[in-house]
């Protein structure tokens, strides 16, 4: 499959902590196809957000990318100079975070956010052109133009997230990384924002990496799904495959432990235990202490991600 826009290869990110290094992302390889919505799911601490940040080299210290490569159109983002990378951020690959309130500057009008953004990427751009373009963007996002002169605190949470998405797409990026873009929002606003992301994806031909812990959100919005657990990628498959037949016991457990009011089951099958400590991870497969299908081999080492009929899974039940 050569239509991939982003190739992540053996990426590892560690956070240095007093108790030892935390393997937040460990040897992850993943390709993102052009035009798709890739859902990256996992619990807190699974490494999904760190992976998203690593793509734009935004991992905050004490985190450090310790190995691997990230190819964007053949260019290794991890080897680029800071100056070159600055040209990629926003223009080629852009990012939206969970909390819009902490992502906008409270002292700057919405207008000034746009002016700063355009000016920083093209100092010669005219204020008048910027205003016209920004208002056009806001209109597309369903924000009345008169909001242009408001400060962030004058906007509701959903409105702020719209503005923020507007800033992320203002320079026409090809890839949008959305990290829990709706987690801080109420369910009706969440639905509005997800509709908006889908609309933008179609209209602007975006590739979207949608990072979330919510299986419902990926079920409704992702084309393909990558599941992370304890810093490792454990399964990658199409949405239909994942939900019809999850291969990895963790994916299966996640799906069966999510309450779904459209199915009438009165008993959830949950995963026992809790995610592991990444400073002292368990020996063998990282999921083995919680796995009901564990056998001898699972205690040897963490299984590699292998191809099972066109989909990927890291579990000895399927070989490897």
């Amino acid at each position: 499959m050569n239509d991939s826009i982003l190739e992540i290869h053996e990426l590892s990110v560690r956070y240095q902590s007093p108790a030892g290094p935390v393997r937040a992302v460990d040897d992850v390889s993943l390709s993102v196809r052009k035009g798709e919505v890739l859902g990256l799911v996992g619990e807190s601490g699974s490494g999904k957000s760190t992976l998203g940040l690593a793509i734009l080299r935004l991992v905050p210290p004490p985190g450090r990318i310790v190995g691997g490569s990230i190819l964007y159109n053949g260019l290794d983002l991890l080897k680029l100079s800071d100056e070159m990378l600055q040209k990629i951020r926003g223009r080629e690959i852009s990012m939206v975070f969970q909390d819009p309130s902490s992502s906008l500057n409270p002292l700057m009008k919405i207008k000034d956010h746009f002016i700063e953004l355009f000016k920083s990427h093209d100092p010669s751009s005219l204020k008048k052109d910027i205003e016209e373009r920004s208002i056009e963007i806001l209109r597309r996002l369903g924000i009345p133009p008169e909001r242009f002169n408001d400060y962030p605190h004058q906007l509701s949470g959903g409105m702020k997230q719209r503005v923020y998405i507007g800033l992320a797409i203002a320079l026409n990026p090809k890839v949008l990384i959305a990290d829990e873009p709706t987690t801080a929002l109420d369910v009706l606003i969440e639905a509005q924002i997800l509709n908006l992301l889908n609309k933008l994806k179609r209209e602007l031909n975006l590739t979207v990496i949608l990072i979330t812990h919510n299986m419902g959100v990926v079920a409704e919005n992702a084309d393909r799904i990558a599941v992370m657990y304890a810093g490792k990628l454990v399964e990658v498959a199409s949405r239909e495959e994942i939900f019809a037949e999850p291969l990895h016991p963790y994916t299966n457990g996640l799906l069966r432990s999510a309450p779904n009011f459209l199915r009438k089951e009165r008993k959830l099958a949950y995963i026992p235990g809790e995610p592991p400590d990444l400073i002292n991870p368990p020996a063998g497969c990282l999921f083995n202490p919680r796995c009901s299908r564990r056998f001898d081999k699972c205690l040897s080492r963490h299984p590699p991600l292998i191809d099972v009929g066109g989909r990927l899974v890291a579990c000895y039940l399927y070989g490897g």
Binding site: E190, A191, L194, N195, E220, A258, L262
Partner: peptide
């Protein structure tokens, strides 16, 4: 609206959504 907005973790069970505009 609330019920229709809940993301359902099963692509085979998707329904039509009814999402009112605006916020509380």
């Amino acid at each position: 609206a609330l019920i229709s907005a809940v993301p359902v973790p099963d692509p085979r069970l998707q329904r039509e959504k009814f999402i009112p505009a605006g916020e509380i």
